[in-house]
Design a binder for these strands. Structure first.
Lengths: 163, 163
DNA sequence: AATATATGTTAAACATGTTTACTTAACGAA
DNA sequence: TTCGTTAAGTAAACATGTTTAACATATATT
């Protein structure tokens, strides 16, 4: 990696870190790009260069949060339990994660609702990954004979996810 | 009515009219408060004085739209038809109204979602009125013996409305 | 009528997300 | 090494919603 590129990544990291801290502390609307930039030791313009706009910055921060929560949930999945219990494990866990930063998630929703999925690539990727996991869980259930073999795993997991 | 008060009402009317025209023509984000004020022959500050903020101005404009649509639907209610047909008459009619200004309604939703109902008094009043109408329709059905007498009209109409 | 008060209105200022034009320094080629 | 190119970074400008302080005049009071 270049000296240029690594320094770029470092500033990006600093900005994202500062944004997470300020967002968590004061919420989205009260956290100014100028505040975030100052805390990261960068300029407001740099924030936009790295993240396109404030909403995208928030998205990135929350995607990280989801990432951590989801990994932890997958790691703590009750192995012996049944299908329903495992789905509920994921479901309630993600609800808790949402609840922990409810205001930030709400801010993201109100800024991205009605927008095409391409505007929130991080979130789209996350939901795809979640649907993929549910898909494989459903396939396992089909193999075990619990679910009907005709069940379309993608449709079924998407339905579960959209709960 | 005072000379002052009537002039105040007139500027308010002019602003609302200008806002409706510009919102319909260019959408919410592209319509500047400065544009609206100029078209109304007033100052940007005056817009805020009369409507508190841009979102409230949009709400007012859309409430007027809903008002007109709803009255027209009530006026064209199929008298001879059954309960279901009449509910569907209202329901599809309001959907058409929504569809006619979908982008404006979406803008209002994204700006007011997660906010307490008190922040959108016009819309709250409208939905109350709609629920009240449905309520009386349900009472009529109960009197005619079509619905079970124990049906709570408020709960039932709120359920219908929230569809 | 003269004066004081209340109120509708606004110009100017402000806050903040975003854009633009420029600077600086790292990188690659000679 | 030297020099032109490229890309990271930013200061300053801009756009726009909102606030503030001041103004002007209709209304109330004497």
């Amino acid at each position: 990696m270049n000296r240029r590129e690594s320094s770029k990544n470092e500033t990006r990291r600093l900005i994202l870190e500062a944004a997470k801290a300020l967002f968590a502390e004061k919420g989205m609307e009260e956290s100014t790009l100028r505040d975030i930039a100052a805390k990261a030791g960068a300029s407001p313009a740099s924030v936009i260069v790295h993240f396109k706009n404030k909403t995208a910055l928030l998205e990135e921060a929350l995607v990280d949060d989801i990432d951590r929560s989801f990994s932890a949930l997958v790691g703590s999945m009750p192995e012996g339990a049944g299908f329903l219990a495992r789905v509920m494990h994921l479901w309630t866990g993600m609800l808790w994660a949402y609840d922990r930063n409810r205001n930030l998630y709400r801010a993201l929703i109100s800024h991205t609702i009605f927008q095409p999925a391409g505007e929130t690539p991080g979130m789209s990727k996350q939901s795809d990954e979640c649907i993929r996991l549910l898909s494989t869980m459903i396939e396992e259930q089909k193999a075990a004979g619990v679910l009907h073999p005709d069940t379309d795993p993608f449709v079924a997991s998407a339905s579960l996810f959209s709960l």
